[in-house]
């Protein structure tokens, strides 16, 4: 399984620089989270890796076998759930593969449903199943849980973490939720003004339990990097610097 390698990747939109010389190597099987404020260029970075956007300059080494889950589930409302999941797959064995994937995301009974009848969390699961059936090497997640309620979000984080462990994908997740990044990722990259301003390794493997005491400290550390002022009483102890 190949790694993803970005060398001096830059992107400008009408002379406005969005990404400015990104160097990043993501080893095969790593779960990396990219956090940053709105406009930091994190979504653009993901779209470049996905091949949906061309970098203005720099070199990208990626793979064809990648799957993307977006913030909106992006299901075709006029195709039933099973057809959405199997979209573009060869007909051979399609229904079995689709049924397996829907089972894996816990929606075995929804194959014949219309997408507009699903809840936000269910739609997002279908979108995950659509990624699963392609047996990708790389899974790209663009703020995949941003539109979900807090409880559904936790469930989905567990699901993604569990699926990642089972399938051994390389995962690149863009998020503005630092807690989510810390729960799931091996490494969290902070993007600021189109550049990587910080890289923090998270010990252990995701999905981590919210009970894990280290997480709060790491979260606080990342929030400080992002320039979020924290209340004085909550100053985190100086641990776990990478």
């Amino acid at each position: 399984m190949p790694e993803i390698r970005l060398e001096r990747i830059s992107k400008r939109f009408d002379d406005v620089p969005v990404l400015d010389g990104i160097d990043l190597v993501i080893p095969a099987g790593e779960f990396i989270a990219i956090v940053g404020r709105s406009g930091s260029g994190k979504s653009t970075l993901l779209r470049i890796i996905a091949g949906l956007e061309q970098a203005t300059s720099g070199r990208l080494q990626s793979t064809d076998r990648l799957a993307v889950a977006f913030q909106e589930a992006r299901l075709m409302p006029w195709l039933k759930v099973a057809e959405n999941v199997g979209f573009g797959l060869p007909a051979k064995d399609q229904s079995r593969i689709v049924a397996d994937a829907l089972g894996e995301v816990g929606l075995a009974g929804k194959a014949a449903s219309w997408p507009l009848t699903l809840s936000g969390g269910q739609a997002q699961r279908v979108s995950l199943a659509r990624a699963l059936v392609r047996q990708p090497e790389v899974l790209l997640l663009d703020e995949p849980f941003g539109a979900l309620d807090a409880l559904t979000k936790l469930e989905m984080q567990n699901l993604v973490g569990t699926l990642w462990r089972a399938h051994g994908w390389t995962v690149v997740m863009v998020t503005h939720d630092v807690a989510e990044a810390v729960r799931l990722a091996d490494r969290v990259i902070v993007l600021d003004g189109g550049q990587i301003s910080e890289s923090v390794a998270i010990p252990g493997r995701g999905p981590r339990s919210p009970e894990d005491g280290h997480l709060a400290a790491l979260e606080a550390q990342l929030l400080r990097h992002l320039g979020v002022p924290l209340p004085a009483g909550n100053a985190a102890p100086e641990t776990a610097h990478s």
Binding site: D64, M76, R130
Partner: peptide
């Protein structure tokens, strides 16, 4: 266009994008 992007990401052939995304969406 976000739905067409899904077709592009998954490297669906053109006739599939034309039929299952554009035609059915325009129905």
């Amino acid at each position: 266009s976000k739905l067409v992007e899904v077709g592009l990401v998954y490297r669906a052939p053109r006739y599939l994008i034309a039929y299952k995304i554009l035609f059915l969406g325009a129905l």
